[in-house]
Simulated scan of single mutants.
Amino acid sequence: MDLGLLAQLGTTGALVLVQAAATDVWQLARAGFTRLLGRGDREREAVAERRLDALAAEVEQALPAQRDEVRRRLLPAWQTRLGDLMEEDPAAADALQVLRDELLARLPAPQQQWVQNITASAPRATAQGAMFGNIINHPNPATDPGDRADGDGSLR
């Protein structure tokens, strides 16, 4: 499997894992990810269990209205862990995919939806938006010289 697909699988696996915390499917997720991360080594399994328990405890201790934010904050660490696992052991991809799909089928439907509408309707207008992330713009002088002010201060 190509590295891009493995990274994507690690990301979607992490998303499902953090979504499962503090739900009825947590024990299934915990057991599956313990096996996956432990790879048959008892010491690795113990480390995975501690990390998984810490994840669940942090989500469970948050007020229900704050749990999605806690999950978003915890997600990058799990993306990294699962991404590293996919890089170190590409054979684990099949097991992660099966576990991810099984958990997805059992997780409750999302209770929240986020909608963002952005409109730009003027000549040379630009509209941008981000949800739960950043937008970083780097001007390219070769293709976008930008607006230049005339001597009277008006833009041309």
Rank of each mutant, 00 (worst) to 15 (best):
G151Y: 10
D2E: 10
R39D: 14
A20N: 07
P108Y: 08
P108T: 14
R39M: 09
R51C: 08
E60T: 13
L5R: 07
L99P: 07
R50P: 00
L96T: 05
R44H: 09
A65Q: 10
V47H: 09
E87A: 15
P76M: 03
V25C: 15
A46P: 00
R42G: 08
P123T: 13
R30P: 06
D24N: 14
G153H: 07
G10V: 02
M1E: 09
L36R: 08
L85D: 04
V16T: 14
E49G: 03
R35F: 07
S121K: 09
D144A: 13
T12R: 08
A46L: 07
A130Y: 04
L6W: 01
V70S: 00
L28G: 05
E45C: 05
Q112N: 12
P76V: 03
E102F: 01
A130P: 02
E88R: 14
V18H: 08
G38Q: 07
A105N: 06
P76E: 02
L52S: 11
Q97R: 14
R35N: 13
R106I: 04
P139M: 02
A109K: 12
A93C: 10
I118M: 08
L96S: 05
R42H: 11
Q111I: 11
L55S: 05
A92E: 06
A21V: 10
A20I: 09
Q8C: 04
G151V: 14
R50N: 10
R81Q: 13
D94T: 15
R100V: 07
I118E: 11
Q27F: 06
Q27C: 03
A127C: 06
L37N: 09
A120I: 12
S154P: 03
T34G: 11
Q61C: 05
T11W: 00
Q8P: 00
T143G: 01
W26T: 13
D152G: 01
R106D: 13
R50A: 15
L36A: 09
V25W: 00
P110E: 15
R100G: 04
D150V: 10
G83P: 02
A20S: 15
G32K: 07
D2G: 14
I136T: 11
E102P: 01
W114I: 15
M86N: 06
A46H: 02
E60S: 15
L55G: 05
A22L: 03
R71Y: 05
P64W: 01
G4N: 04
D89F: 00
E87M: 10
L75F: 12
T23C: 05
L36K: 09
A77V: 03
R106T: 04
R81M: 11
A62T: 07
G40I: 07
Q112W: 11
T80F: 05
T119E: 12
L85F: 04
G129N: 06
R124S: 08
Q128M: 12
D89C: 08
G146P: 10
